[in-house]
Design a protein around this nucleic acid. Sequence first.
DNA 1: AGCTTGACCGACC
DNA 2: TGGTCGGCCAAGC
Length: 115
Amino acid sequence: MGRMSEELPAYAERVLEAAERIPPGRVMTYGDVAEWLGEGGPRQVGRVMALYGGAVPWWRVVRADGRPLPGSEPRALERYRAESTPLRLTGDGEPRLDMRRARWDGDAGRDEGHM
DNA sequence: AGCTTGACCGACC
DNA sequence: TGGTCGGCCAAGC
């Protein structure tokens, strides 16, 4: 046991932890997660999710345009429906996330407007 | 050491 | 609404 090599890079672990924090019925964009962490950027978050996202609620981390993850749209939509995540229909009738309502800021401004 | 690659983003047209 | 472009930064080679 000479080595404690982490299977996950530390950064990846933080990203996954952030994803697990997102409450049901809400979503964060890749950029939001990066900003919340204060590390990396959207592309880095995306890469982590691509590699290890299966271990966390991956459907709650989405692109900024609210479009469901390509390739997993049926599964994502099933989750959104189960969690009552705000959706919205486009002109084509394709369901997309209603980002104005579904986007979660990580409780960043939890205290504001309280006093 | 320097590329290259991304489950991206915002600006712009 | 859809396409391009530059910027972004960790990981892999």
